[in-house]
């Protein structure tokens, strides 16, 4: 668990515009936030998908320790608590990329679809600027709803 900061994190090239749009419209501050959300959604839904066309998205140095911890926890749990997995930062991120790739699809289906330009979903999903006004608050609200759906011991 070195939290190596020099790894390139990838997403599918088809989501390049979406990541940019989300950042430019003030929905997220940086790419790692959206990536984290997508990875969490993908993991919790048990969905992962190989990236068809890998595209550099951001450096791993922007990932916060808490996010790293969650990524390790995913891999650790999924590997039936294989401690050896805890020292392989690059491999961890490669697996997380697949969860994030599945998660982003779920995010689009469950939430972002109404905010996309018509017909953009099939190729490169893009936000519709006309619909973006209320997006930041709805985005936060969506995350809170996802969190509320999870159960944990309070």
């Amino acid at each position: 668990m070195r939290m190596d900061g020099n790894i390139r994190v990838h997403t599918d090239a088809m989501y390049k515009e979406l990541y940019n749009n989300m950042k430019n419209n003030g929905v997220i501050e940086d790419f790692h936030e959206l990536f984290f959300l997508c990875a969490c959604i993908g993991y919790r839904k048990g969905e992962h998908a190989a990236i068809q066309k890998r595209d550099d998205r951001f450096w791993s140095r922007t990932i916060t320790p808490k996010e790293w911890a969650c990524y390790y926890a995913m891999i650790f749990e999924k590997s039936n608590f294989d401690y050896e997995k805890l020292s392989e930062d690059k491999k961890v991120l490669e697996i997380v990329e697949r969860y994030a790739n599945a998660g982003v699809k779920i995010l689009i289906e469950d939430f972002l679809e109404d905010y996309l330009l018509p017909n953009s979903n099939n190729s490169t999903p893009q936000l519709d600027p006309a619909c973006c006004r209320g997006l930041p608050k709805q985005f936060v609200h969506f995350i809170f709803e996802q969190a509320e759906m999870e159960t944990w011991d309070r």
């Binding site: 969650c70 926890a73 749990e77 930041p136 999870e150 944990w152």
Partner: peptide, 23 residues
């Protein structure tokens, strides 16, 4: 809204709560 946005990371982490607890 600005306060809520600062909570994005915390809220996303909540999604991972069951895993965190198990691990």
């Amino acid at each position: 809204l600005s306060e809520m946005r600062n909570l994005v990371c915390k809220a996303t982490a909540l999604i991972m709560a069951p895993t965190v607890i198990t691990v």
